[in-house]
Simulated scan of single mutants.
Amino acid sequence: MIRDTIINILVETKNKFTINELEDKVMQKFSSLDKYDRAGGYLGFYQIVQSLHEEGEIIPLKANEESSKVPSLPLKWKKRTNEVSQSWSDLQFVRAEAGNLNVAFYKRHPEMQTELEWGRIETVLQFLPTRDSRIYISKEERSYELFGQEKWLDKKEDGDRFLKRIGITLEDFRAKSYGEPFVFWQNPLSNSSKQALIVENLSAFHTIKRALITFNHIYNLQVDVLIYGEGYHIMRSFPFIDEVGAPEKIYYAGDLDPHGLSILIDLCKNYPEYPLLPAENLYRAMIRNHSQTTPANGEFLTTVLQDFLSRLKTDEETTRAIKDLWDCKRRIPQEAVNFETISKECNDGYI
């Protein structure tokens, strides 16, 4: 998957580029660092760049520096250039421009002037005059109608890049992108939806659900709606929060690691109109009850840590514990708190 992403990016990039610019663009195609890592991460990126070099598709510049990552790559590169003559007629370009399509990319890249690509442009030109009379349907439905593939317009597919090339949006297609709803549990002991709790992991979802049924709270936090965030999936599914009653407060608890902290920070930045807060008592319980820490993956960005800590109203001991994890590149998963832990602390007076 990374190889296809790199090739598509190279088609649209300028002749000379740096390896850092290329990897940044590749990472942006994934919705999270975790997904990039699972697809192969930097090592996969390195191997594909080496392969493209061996195939002669990209060439390192002379008098070059090395990148800072290990294994390192030459910093500056250029694409192999082939002289390709224009294959679309001037009349085709005039027709596309008359339909308010941006075809500058195809003039710069004649190798993209294929019969298949023109067929797609023709499809767009036929649809646009009818758009005012069309009703909104899902992106997948419109993609199937126009291009014969329901997923072709997805962000990671060619269709998304095609639309950007010609200056068209989903709005022009009268198409909407709907996220996948999250799994949630409505507390039967509550008759409102004022407070919601989102948890990153599935095991934590079931444990906290069990605790709420037993104690009707989790570490003194009243929860009316419990939501399984499913890692970074919550970034796409979060808009469905309004369908569970538009809570007045929305708490979040995830793993104490770069990914877990980043999810909360990204939620706050992408949905600033919602009252999102860290579930501090749960984080304190994780620190208090962890039996060991484990090595953490991801980028330990100081900005993420500082942003997360600025949202806490906790004691210095907890703050120091989180900073120590960050400095040592260690993590505590949500599984540090289990139902046995919760039951024992309830009996000991913690909750």
Rank of each mutant, 00 (worst) to 15 (best):
I6E: 01
S85E: 15
Y283Q: 04
I9N: 07
A253Q: 09
Q306G: 08
G167Y: 08
L75H: 10
E243G: 00
P110W: 11
N201T: 02
N64L: 08
Q149K: 15
T214R: 14
N216K: 13
R330Q: 15
K78N: 07
F205P: 02
K323M: 13
S89C: 03
F93W: 04
E122G: 01
D160N: 13
L301N: 15
R174I: 01
P278W: 04
S133A: 13
W185C: 05
L282N: 01
Q334F: 01
F182T: 08
E117M: 14
K29T: 10
E230F: 01
F30M: 10
L212M: 10
Y178V: 15
R3E: 15
P278E: 04
D158E: 14
G148E: 07
R210P: 00
I208H: 05
S262F: 01
W185V: 08
R108A: 15
N220F: 11
F173L: 15
F147E: 08
I48G: 03
G44P: 07
F147L: 07
I263R: 10
M112W: 03
G40T: 05
E273I: 02
S138L: 05
S310N: 15
L163I: 08
Q92T: 04
L73K: 10
E145C: 05
S193T: 15
A204R: 02
K194A: 12
L305Y: 08
E230V: 00
M112K: 12
L261G: 02
P110F: 10
G159Q: 06
R120V: 00
T303Q: 12
I234K: 04
N187E: 01
E345S: 07
F162K: 06
E66N: 12
Q126N: 12
T214C: 02
A296Y: 01
H233E: 12
A204L: 03
S72D: 03
D24R: 14
I250R: 08
N187I: 07
S89F: 00
I59C: 06
